[in-house]
Computed example of a mutant assay.
Amino acid sequence: MNALGTAVVTGASSGIGAVYAERLADRGHDLIIAARDEDRLNSLARRVTDRTGRKVDVLRSDLTKDEDVARLEARFESDASITLLVNNAGMSLNGGLLDNGPVALERLIALNVTAPTRLARAAGRAFVSRGAGAIINIASVLALAPEAFDGVYSGSKAFLLNLSLSLSHQLKDSGVRIQAVLPGATRTEIWERSGKDVDAFPAEMVMAVDDLVDAALTGFDRGETVTIPPLADEGAWNALNDARLFMAPYLSMRDVAPRYRAP
């Protein structure tokens, strides 16, 4: 086992996942890369190995399918070299809630919510037992701005943010690190796949994928639990989070708040 161990990257055939694979190999990680497009995975694996010499295992996986998620879950238990999970695989809807049928909605929830939850559980259990490891969940700034886009997609990303904050709190003394990354609009194939035009945004609002991943890894190196690469004012996130934490002791009480009592 190499010093940094093996990183598992889901959705690694293109976009954010592919760049994470490249960057983590540059840092010295071996890789397990998972996605549906096996040809692209193999091309990425050859490129990474030729350039870095790192070992890369390709795992063709459709993480909307239970058996493929289970196969990847099992790797965390059986392979003690795994030290990092990048929960990146995800999709967006073509249209919104009212424009899509049950199959499309269930597929998004399976990929954006169920699969990363199960993989975080498998990785977390393995890492806690070893006293070390890290989980990076790729969420979205839409977790904080549900009015800006489709609520199903943004809701799935809010779920990942909540999951990350909860896990970070629960595992703070375990040696296991958790990071949620909240990209803004990023130039990847998810736009085209969901029938959207990323070029409809002003150019200054769309980040290059390499810049996004490099910033996210800088946040990881700094020990951040939440990394928002486009946000210049860190104090804005801190203020929002502090307000949330301030409310926490008052959110569950025996008595109804006076403002809800009949006059």
Rank of each mutant, 00 (worst) to 15 (best):
V176E: 04
V176T: 13
V176S: 09
V176C: 10
V176H: 07
R177E: 05
I178C: 09
Q179P: 11
Q179E: 13
A180G: 10
V181I: 15
L182Q: 03
L182K: 01
P183E: 09
G184D: 10
G184L: 10
A185N: 03
R187T: 01
R187A: 05
T188R: 12
E189N: 13
W191L: 01
W191P: 03
E192T: 08
R193W: 00
R193N: 13
G195L: 06
G195S: 07
K196S: 11
D197S: 14
D199C: 00
A200S: 15
A200P: 02
A200K: 13
F201Y: 15
P202F: 08
P202M: 06
P202A: 10
A203H: 05
E204K: 12
E204F: 10
E204M: 05
V206M: 04
M207D: 03
M207P: 01
M207N: 01
A208L: 10
V209A: 05
V209I: 11
D210Y: 07
D210W: 08
D211K: 11
D211A: 12
D211S: 12
L212M: 15
L212R: 01
V213A: 07
A215G: 02
A216D: 07
L217E: 04
L217F: 13
L217A: 10
L217R: 05
T218H: 13
G219M: 13
F220P: 07
F220A: 12
F220S: 08
F220H: 15
D221S: 15
R222H: 15
R222G: 15
G223S: 12
E224A: 14
V226S: 01
T227W: 00
I228S: 01
P229G: 07
P229W: 12
P230N: 11
A232R: 14
D233L: 09
D233Q: 14
E234H: 08
G235A: 15
G235M: 08
A236E: 09
W237Q: 03
